[in-house]
Design a binder for these strands. Structure first.
Lengths: 295, 295
DNA sequence: CCCACGTCATCTCTTATAGTGATGGACTTT
DNA sequence: AAAGTCCATCACTATAAGAGATGACGTGGG
């Protein structure tokens, strides 16, 4: 059994057919058939059931699948590890919450690209769920998300903690939950935003449920909407103070156990940690420590 | 890059020479040389430094090594996974603390071999440290050790908790720590025993340090020694009650937070879990639940 | 100092293996 | 029933792997 066999196996399984796999692998169908038959012979078990429309995995094939995937990714990682001589360079794709990008990451980026010009950094904004999926699928090397995540395949490192505050129009001087916030909406940046779930949970605990959602693409629009009294939202205090000094909104603090949110960096436990990634994380940690020291 | 290449690479690296690797791999030296050169060409980096006595890994080679090892073990596991159709069979090697074997595992073994005659079970006694190393090196599939372990590569599952008691000769009616236990020794079953560290910690917290050690191979000898007033020891209460009913010793309880010890089952996160292992663990869990129900 | 020994590199030749393209049978769809 | 898929099989070719001999280099013993 060899890695090439597993690559063929994986392709056949994924595409559900030997002909399809053959064209993907730039070879001919007879070749794929022969290799699969050989592999089946070596393992002493049928890996596929042949039908007229293609093939389907047998139980034995399903058992082999995760190993095939892992070997393939390991070999890819191995190449990168050999090429990575400790000097950060190459592509680095990181996921992050949008608010984390604008509040914490963006200010650091110019310094980072200056220090490590060889690294092609790209940051993909997304919700916590999206980023977790992206890390698990290896579309990104790691991500900054709302923690704790507690996933067995992921390693997580706490990066910073921050306070969330509820924002309303200035006319609301004190949050009166019992009134039910009649007619107000939850205003969020994106539909899947972590803060949305958090705000809903928070309201539910106070007996307020079934608020409608209002979604915006930009912070500016969101701010305007809240100021106009259309809804309430939940955002990091620092972000409000950074962007919103000149606007008239009411900031409502929450009890500490509800207010504090932790941002963690996650990455696959089994994935290669490139020098580029390590240096970026170092840079971020260092930046966070400086912010904390300044406060 | 292929798994066969990595097997050659690993062998050369481990044996420190291409000729030696060739004879291990049942091939000729020229072949090994060619494959290594090919691999180096594909990766674009030298993996070995050649000198007159053999070869040594370059930094790039050292970076490749862990991947080579993992791919090799993955392929081995993959074969087992394909062969394992869900019916427990084959070899199963498990590590365990000696006391756990005699108190908890041994009574279950006859039932297990009766239920799953196809499994060749062997249990290797050892200390917590030894067993952890054995699991990490894949010499055993899993082990029962003193928890919590908190190792990132290991998955652990709590199996049972039990009470440890201090044993002394009957003449000691009440443990008087302040007296310093002058002349008494710590009696342990084996030098690396977890209970020894625990007892030392416990004594240290009470200001008693520097006690000498006395080591025995069998419980009988240990018991005799404690009864004779030569030293003190720390053992599970159930074990004392099982084996030692007829002897005259003093049993001294400890405060709950110090007395309770947890036994966990550990296994490598990345290793294949055979049906044999799963069924054994099920059997043990079930047995433990029955014991708890009986109490 | 020189020679025997062990190391890896290189070469040619042989053999084994993977890959190609055509064909046929099984099944589905139209 | 015909056309279209799909996989299995076969003969053939191309490529890669392996074997064995030889050479270059460095080490250590006499």
């Amino acid at each position: 059994m060899d890695a090439a066999d597993l690559r063929v196996f994986e392709s056949v399984a994924r595409l559900g057919g030997m002909s399809r796999a053959a064209s993907e692998l730039n070879t001919v169908q007879s070749n794929v058939t022969a290799r699969i038959r050989l592999l089946e012979g070596q393992l002493g078990a049928a890996l596929f059931e042949r039908h007229s429309r293609g093939v389907a995995l047998t139980p034995a094939g399903r058992r082999l699948m995760p190993y095939a995937l892992q070997v393939i990714t390991l070999l890819r990682d191995a190449k990168r590890a050999v090429a990575d001589d400790g000097d950060p360079k190459g592509d680095l794709v990181i996921g992050s919450l949008e608010t984390t990008i604008s509040m914490h990451l963006a200010p650091l980026l110019t310094g980072f690209v200056e220090k490590w010009p060889g690294v092609d950094l790209s940051i993909k904004g997304g919700t916590t769920c999206e980023s977790i999926d992206a890390v698990l699928d290896r579309r990104v090397e790691g991500a900054f998300v709302c923690g704790p995540v507690n996933h067995p395949e992921l390693e997580e490192e706490s990066i910073f903690r921050e306070e969330l505050v509820v924002l309303t129009s200035p006319s609301v001087t004190r949050l009166d939950w019992s009134a039910g916030l009649g007619g107000l909406r939850i205003v969020v940046l994106r539909a899947g935003c972590s803060y949305r779930q958090r705000l809903e949970d928070l309201l539910a605990r106070r007996g307020v449920v079934g608020l409608r959602l209002l979604e915006f693409g930009t912070l500016e629009a969101l701010f305007g909407c809240v100021a106009a009294g259309l809804g309430i939202t939940l955002l990091p205090r620092r972000m409000v103070e950074m962007v919103w000094r000149d606007r008239r909104v009411a900031i409502h603090a929450l009890p500490p156990e509800e207010a504090m949110v932790e941002t963690v960096f996650i990455r696959r436990r089994d994935a290669f940690v490139s020098s580029a990634q390590a240096s970026f994380l170092d840079f971020v940690r260092h930046g966070m420590a400086q912010v904390r020291a300044a406060e």
